[in-house]
Nucleic acid binder design. Structure first.
Length: 478
RNA sequence: CCGGGUGUGGCGCAGUUUGGUAGCGCACUUGCUUUGGGAGCAAGGGGCCGCUGGUUCAAAUCCAGUCACCCGGACCA
């Protein structure tokens, strides 16, 4: 009976995945819709997740020598225009500011969709010598892109992200940086978010506007669609030339620096939800969960229960666990369901019977397993259990990715795999844009990436049959 | 941008066909009893029926317009 009531609250994910997602983001109190289409309020619980993501990434960036800065929110039109490919890529989806107060501006200003042009303009002012390099900058901010279709976390007209921008003396250094930051994202996804990734390079068609090369970590969601987890671009010196960024090198010659940028956004929270969530709601990976352990006292009115619960909380806090207890007068069953909805990785039940037995009951959110934990070993067992939840989530997601990535040799094969099973398809490809377009038209898939870990599926392109030595992962993307 | 859907206490909805005192469930407040999977009883509070105009003695309901959001598609680093 209780079960029935529970599932009535949110749509079954196997019936309507999109509706399930909407239900979860609202019922777990992550977002609220704002007054303007495509703008979302990140409620405290969602922002706490983002802050945990920020603090882990920010530390890694700084450990690698990056510094945080803040660029303006507005870009003059003339500045945006400077790099041809870049403006072509972004102009259709920028928001314009045309008035200051009641006065029309002499030049319209766009709300930044990304900050390459701002960094470039700044660097053209301050860069002098090879001794100034590398410049390793990052900023945490929000950007605006006037999307037509919007969804919480996945596609908003405003979204929060970090954008790293770096400037290097040589091509080699910049390329190294690009790969290094891609690896930071891959490691973060796998070890902090329990989301397995495929690392690879984007095709010409899918690469960033103005980049020489774009790299990505691609994730597979529970519904087998693809989500880009993070992205890292190598720019060569194209932007430097367009913005006239030059430095005097060791030989006293003027040179153009090589540039990178890389980013991860709040979209990854959508990825977390769609990777780990289930029909009871959200499931958060322990490393970024705002509350890792929720202590629920049972039969609170009984002597000593509340005191014992408070003792567990303070012991776990000292042990470095993000822990809370719920001593409200809701029934235990209500609390169980509530904190499952909110995705808290571990629940601890403590009642008179437990106290008598010198234990508490830990319940894993990922698989529902109930584990008696001796109160003596609390500080040791709870972190272990959190790690086990992380592993459990990772392995489940990995299994989903592996089992739903299939090789194919013909377009027909791709088409039927996508139609019948979904997921990723790996095929050989001749690198021709025409074949890539055909895949979209005929099979409804876009290229996700050319994985670093290449395999030989066949000798010829899946589409045109010409000789091909590049393996591409195809899929339907968010 | 195209198609579909929805706007009624905080949330979810009924009421609209056939105009006539604005209702239900959850949530909220107070009290008592409960507490190992969404507790029970009792008493309460809370509404420009998205907005604008029209028809009418009378509009949540009919008509016209408009706005917003959701879903799908197209589009989109």
């Amino acid at each position: 009976m209780a079960k029935e009531k529970k599932v009535q609250q949110i749509t079954d994910m196997d019936v309507d995945f999109a509706q399930w997602f909407t239900d979860v983001v609202t019922k777990a109190e992550l977002i609220d819709y704002a007054g303007v289409k495509g703008f979302f309020i990140l409620r405290p619980y969602a922002f706490a997740i983002w802050e945990n993501i920020q603090s882990i990434l920010d530390k890694r960036f700084k450990d690698l020598g990056h510094e945080n800065v803040s660029m303006p929110v507005l870009i003059p039109e003339s500045l945006l225009q400077k790099e041809k490919d870049h403006v072509e890529g972004f102009a259709p989806e920028v928001a314009w500011v045309t008035h200051g107060g009641s006065e029309e501006l002499s030049e319209r200003l766009c709300v930044r969709p990304t900050s390459e042009t701002l960094f470039c303009d700044h660097w053209s002012h301050v860069l002098r010598s090879w001794r100034d390099l590398p410049m390793l900058y990052n900023q945490w901010c929000s950007v605006v892109r006037w999307e037509k279709t919007t969804r919480p976390f996945l596609r908003g007209r405003e979204f929060h992200w970090q954008e790293g921008h770096t400037l290097h003396a040589t091509r080699e250094e910049a390329e190294f940086e690009t790969q290094q930051m891609l690896n930071v994202y891959a490691d973060f996804c796998e070890n902090s978010l329990a989301m397995p990734v495929i690392k690879g390079q984007k095709t010409e068609k899918e690469k960033f506007a103005g980049a020489v090369a774009t790299y990505t970590v691609e994730c597979m969601m529970h519904d087998k669609k693809a989500l880009q987890g993070g992205t890292s671009h190598y720019f060569g010196d194209g932007f430097a030339r367009a913005f006239n960024i030059q430095f005097t090198d060791k030989d006293n010659k003027l040179a153009y620096p090589h540039q990178t940028s890389w980013g991860m956004s709040t979209r990854i929270i959508g990825g977390i939800i769609m990777t780990h969530g289930d029909n009871s709601g959200l499931v958060l990976p322990p490393k970024i969960a705002p509350i890792q352990v929720m202590v629920i006292p049972i039969a609170m009115h009984k002597e000593g229960v509340l005191e014992k619960a408070a003792e567990l909380v303070s012991r776990l806090k000292v042990a470095g666990i993000r822990v809370k207890s719920d001593v409200s007068d809701q029934s235990p069953g209500w609390k169980f369901a509530e904190y499952e909805m909110k995705g808290i990785p571990l629940r601890i039940e403590i009642g008179p019977k437990d106290i008598e037995a010198g234990q508490c009951m830990a319940v894993r959110r990922d698989n529902g397993e109930k584990i008696p934990v001796s109160l003596d070993s609390l500080e040791k067992r709870i972190p272990e259990l959190l790690e086990e939840v992380h592993q459990g989530l990772y392995l489940k997601a990995k299994k989903n990715l592996t089992e739903n990535t299939r090789p194919a040799k013909t377009v027909e094969e791709v088409k039927s795999i996508i139609a019948e099973k979904g997921g990723f398809v790996k095929t050989m490809w001749c690198r021709d844009l025409e074949c890539e377009m055909k895949m979209k038209e005929q099979a409804g898939v876009t290229s996700r990436c050319m994985p670093f870990e290449q395999e030989t599926i066949a000798d010829t392109c899946v589409c045109c049959g010409k000789p091909a030595d590049t393996m591409v992962i195809w899929g339907v993307a968010y």
